[in-house]
Design a protein around this nucleic acid. Sequence first.
DNA 1: ACCTGAACACCGTTCAAGT
DNA 2: ACCTGAACACCGTTCAAGT
Lengths: 196, 196
Amino acid sequence: MGNTLTRTRVLDGAVKLADEQGLPALSMRKLAAELGVEAMSLYNHVPSKAALLSGMLEWMLAALDIPADPELTWTERLRRGATSFLAIHRSHPSFIQLLTSQHIHTGSALAPTEAVLRIFRQAGFDGPDASRAYQALIGYVLGFILQQDVGTIGLTCCGQGQACAHASLLGSGDTEADFQFGLDLVLRGLEAKLAG
Amino acid sequence: MGNTLTRTRVLDGAVKLADEQGLPALSMRKLAAELGVEAMSLYNHVPSKAALLSGMLEWMLAALDIPADPELTWTERLRRGATSFLAIHRSHPSFIQLLTSQHIHTGSALAPTEAVLRIFRQAGFDGPDASRAYQALIGYVLGFILQQDVGTIGLTCCGQGQACAHASLLGSGDTEADFQFGLDLVLRGLEAKLAG
DNA sequence: ACCTGAACACCGTTCAAGT
DNA sequence: ACCTGAACACCGTTCAAGT
């Protein structure tokens, strides 16, 4: 039968479990049960839980698409890359938490960074400025996503007796438009930096 | 003797332990031992570990200073607020992780948000735009800090056999300057939005 | 080579008992 | 009112034993 336990089957199951029940609910024992196997069997395909989490992150990063197409302007390429990043977060809510807790140094994690830096260099940013441009862009993208989970959720309730006008204040409803607003801000700012 | 266990003493100890050994090392049992007490004694002053973590976050947020001084330009007030935020992260490495994992809805968490929104409204941003300006600014600040822990650390090593030029590529050494670079980008972008 | 089950050293938390 | 100790339901992981 095709039910042999394998590394990809373990990763698939782990991502599925995290997607459905959240990252805190993911334990080796629960994952094993979900796969109809004993907890210790997992260790034949993954050396530790940390390695499992890193594997899940790589699994998700595989969907990241940063176009290198020279027909597109550099801002357009970055805009699409950022949007692809946001899409991963939408499909896998644990994405950001994995990204910020798992330190991976494999090619699959470095490739995206190099791709973005390459775009900045081609656009005309020199060494240090390419690095800073990278930090500004990724900073915004990362932070915006983080806020959706923190800010918005955390602020749906109010202290004291005041009514809750805050939930609507932040996140105007159209998250996609909110995201593009700030993305535009950063990209235009970088364009201006390049011209001036 | 002044060794009576108290909520503030518990919070002080928890922050200290997290500062020194990292958030993952903070357990109710270890914290109790540090305070020379049994684990269950903590529950007389804090209802749960989640409440302890929220308490720690409020503890840290108390140091956040967002000036309201009308003598300062709105960009200067925001710049100082953002810098104060970064300073908290410097003193307490767990700050961001607590902020993104603990959903608090007390006044101490809402006050900073309202302060920033007030500054944007006074600057001339109307409802939805104030919200988006807020998201863009906080997004950058949050994301930049996150990167320091992720990006930089995660990328100090390289895949394959290529030498490690990446560590120096990102984070040009002067983190403060790197931070101000992107902060400037966002604030100038918002200024332009207001004028145009 | 892969799976299993018992075991170890941890967790947060409940509950009954002490003062 | 506050502290304690045993206990419960979990963790990740080691190790010896099975196939």
